[in-house]
Nucleic acid binder design. Structure first.
Lengths: 342, 342
DNA sequence: TGTTAGCACTCGTCGCCATCGAGTGCTAAC
DNA sequence: GTTAGCACTCGATGGCGACGAGTGCTAACA
């Protein structure tokens, strides 16, 4: 643990570094942040902080740069809450205004707003409804051998998929079957669906493959990893000096285009309300000078998806956290009306 | 028009420039491409070509760089067809192998393969079915005030959207209505849908708003601009030396993130089978050192969507064209089975 | 008349060096 | 324990000369 003065100096260094991305010197701290102390005193403290692993020195006669450990400490102990100004609130609330019918579009919008208000890159996962309550199941024939399985939950129709059906089933049979499925699944969660469908099958008999493909489609449905991830605001990343080196920019963009990697990144923090991963904690070497702040959003009180912001390690954490908090509220509110979909 | 020798020299210059991205000198041409001519002769010709506007000279004692006009000429007159090697064919055909149920996923895959085999960025638009034949229409209730309108065409279910419905309609009424809609719309095109729905309304009477929202949803459906665009392989762009300048990279990525811009870009070339836009032809100043090669893909013999490749102006056009041609065949073939969807 | 060898000239790139200044560590005085 | 002072470090900046790729021009040649 650091004593008060060291913590205060470390905070000043991190604050300044977040602002400028330049190594911070003792004189700067003394003049701009802690005028009661002379630069010499601060120099001594900085020397200690370096020894403790909180600061790095790019070369022996330059200012100090906060290490990953300093940011960890900053995030855990030093950081103060930030609040949004009215303009930012207005922009976020603006998402309410335009009626959005398609989930796809809502996610794209969310990603843009998130990226533009933070000036970093953003990640948004579509909602997964493993735990959502089923409202209705309907099978709509497409061709003679295929049909569309539509699953409506309390959060709207979140996805739909193609299933194979035996040839020669009449529309009315499928309609009837849909009604029976709806009757037996309604108000249950997707997790319970499999056994309920099987129960219905053993009761009704009939087309084994049909029931099997329904079960399979529902399983896929609950599996979040099949869903993709919306990425926004990559352009903002290139504006930060840490990416003035094209090689770095390239590997970052590479990482941001690998949806799988992003997915495990978001998934790792599970349902935790607000998670921060910094530098090496990101796992991937491509992202070792990035940080990710992510949060969940809810439908009907249950976590169904994640919002995240990826920025450089020296990102403005308090602001990002404030934006994310607000966004999750807005998005959760929007989705809880249960009328939006696809 | 250029005489044979000038054309040959221009071709050599463009070829070399495409390979190296460096200004090309007369000696290089003489040694590597046209050994029957001395560098001095080529120098004279190059001087002429510069006068004619086909070459630029970055500074007075450096080699020549092909101008936009040279690339136009190259593309229109000089370029020879290229064919794909077996490895590339294998990769493209690999898209067939994994059974893909979701349109979303198919498009993502297409974009990745397209980007990775060309090593440029790729664009893919989802199919639009203005001209497709309707097979079935079904209204699936979601909540008491909303329903999902599902439109099945000969290319599968391409999209579906939420409509408002009057409260208190029974499921069976909607099912009946769906069957009537299907009966009257089936085998007609989406363009004709509006009047047919209106005709059905005046025949049946009843819920005016319901019919209105069906018409509205179908209109939106046919409107391609509502669909989004899948972009892939942005990482490849940063590997090219023209984007070693971060500012340029930033404005390119900015452009690639603005789906609207991309959309008009693709739309402009309408249904033309293979279009090439070079540099200034791209319209946007953000993309003035890019080129776009784009093509259509078909469902049931009709153009429904576009594939495009965005690269630097000095991109490998013959190869890109070969890849695009093959991709459109594969994709069209895949979609023509009519069983893939959402 | 078209082609080519030769040559002077241009101009960007690279490496070298001196200068500058931000920032440090250390010492000595307060 | 704090601070003023000072020598020192080291990256950044800018000037300078050497280098070389490439040019345009001229004169000789087929």
């Amino acid at each position: 643990m650091l004593d008060d003065r060291k913590a205060r100096i470390l905070q000043a260094i991190v604050d300044d570094y977040i602002l400028t991305a330049l190594p911070v010197g003792s004189r700067t701290i003394s003049r701009k942040y802690i005028s009661e102390l002379s630069s010499a005193t601060i120099r001594n403290e900085m020397s200690d902080l370096e020894e403790l692993g909180y600061l790095d020195q790019p070369h022996s006669s330059s200012g100090r740069v906060p290490s990953y450990r300093a940011f960890r400490f900053y995030v855990d102990q030093l950081m103060r809450n930030s609040s949004l100004n009215t303009e930012e609130l207005k922009r976020i609330n603006g998402m309410f205004l335009s009626r959005i019918d398609k989930m796809e579009e809502l996610l794209d919008n969310t990603a843009s707003v998130l990226a533009d208000t933070t000036a970093y890159a953003s990640l948004v996962t579509p909602p997964v409804q493993k735990s959502l309550t089923l409202k209705r199941v309907q099978i709509v024939p497409i061709t003679s051998g295929t049909a569309l399985l539509i699953v409506v939950t309390d959060a709207g129709v979140l996805k739909d998929s193609i299933i194979r059906i035996p040839e020669g089933l009449s529309d009315d049979y499928l309609y009837m079957l849909s009604n029976m499925l709806t009757a037996s699944l309604s108000e249950h969660s997707l997790e319970q669906a499999e056994e309920l469908v099987n129960a219905l099958f053993s009761e009704m008999g009939g087309h084994r493959e049909l029931f099997a493909s329904i079960v399979k489609a529902m399983e896929q449905r609950g599996d979040a990893s099949s869903g993709h991830i919306v990425v926004g605001g990559v352009k903002h990343m290139l504006a930060h000096p840490e990416y003035s080196d094209v090689e770095r920019a390239r590997s970052l963009i590479s990482a941001l285009e690998s949806k799988d990697k992003l997915f495990t990144l978001l998934e790792r923090s599970g349902g935790v309300e607000m998670t921060i991963s910094i530098g090496p904690e990101m796992g991937s070497p491509d992202m070792k000078d990035c940080a990710l702040v992510s949060t969940t959003y809810k439908i009907g009180g249950r976590d169904v998806g994640r919002l995240g912001v990826i920025g450089p390690v020296r990102m403005n954490y308090p602001h990002v956290i404030a934006v994310l908090s607000r966004m999750r509220e807005v998005l959760s509110g929007l989705l809880d009306h249960g009328t939006d979909s696809t």
